[in-house]
Amino acid sequence: MRADWDALAQPAEQISTGQWVGLPVEGWTSAASPPRQVLTGSHGRVEPLDAERHGAQLYEALHQMAGGANWTYLSHGPFSSLEDWQTWMQANAGREDPQFYAIVDARDDVAIGLCSYLCIEPADGCIEVGFLNFSPRLQRSRLATEAMYLMMRNAFELGYRRYEWKCDAQNTPSVKAALRLGFTFEGLFRQARTNKGRNRDTAWFSILDHEWPQRRRALELWLADANFDAQGRQLRSLSEFAAEAAA
């Protein structure tokens, strides 16, 4: 337990009282609140959620998995009708926190996934990515990684010092995705909440601003066209690039 604490704790210094405190954050004022803007990549876009523009496309894309498996760990859904989904969209699309986005495939301009910024704290420089819901078409795709990269890059460019990922501890795909993308596992919040009548232990992950340049390099090398063959298959894994960037 102590080893984990020492590995995760940020540098500190001793003050005149003999107490240890965190180092000064030189020049810190605040991060910027995320503006509602389109984040454009090579394979798709992350667009501010619009009920009229994205509603029907997302309803179709996100209601394909047997038993609604992609909704299990979310606090909402699945929805029994397009009308019910549109009602949820209209109530949430304009919110500032969480601030929702659609992930749009550039090949046909169809929305195939949902994500958001949430727990947005500009004064503390902390922001979370969440409410992730990827359709079968988006899952394990190059666009899925690109969308997460675009969200990360935007957050750090806005001045955030800490970028969080939290998920149900039983959600193994989400845990693996966080680790693959370069997040550090910080621990479990046991019995943090209930979700759809069941206990939820929440796993916490983060990337810090001084870690971002290394993570960014690995992601950009993995996303580059040179890393994919003519059939769109990766030549090297993201973990390989991450290991090289860390060396």
Rank of each mutant, 00 (worst) to 15 (best):
T184G: 07
R193N: 15
R198F: 09
K176Y: 11
R190W: 13
S174V: 00
N195C: 14
G197E: 05
K196A: 07
G197N: 09
K176C: 10
A203W: 00
N195M: 14
R190T: 12
R193C: 14
K176E: 12
F189M: 09
R190Y: 12
Q191C: 14
R198M: 07
F183R: 00
L179M: 13
T184Y: 03
F183E: 00
K176W: 07
T184S: 14
F185E: 04
A203Y: 04
R180M: 11
W204I: 01
D201W: 09
R200I: 01
T184Q: 13
A203S: 13
N195Q: 15
R193H: 12
R198L: 10
T184L: 07
R198E: 11
A178H: 04
V175R: 15
A178R: 02
W204R: 05
T184C: 08
L188A: 08
A177V: 03
R180N: 13
D201N: 15
F189N: 06
P173M: 07
A178K: 00
W204Y: 13
N199A: 10
A177K: 01
A192F: 14
A177Q: 05
Q191K: 15
A203F: 05
N199M: 06
K176N: 11
V175N: 13
V175Y: 11
L179Y: 00
N199T: 02
R193T: 15
R198I: 00
G197H: 10
A177N: 02
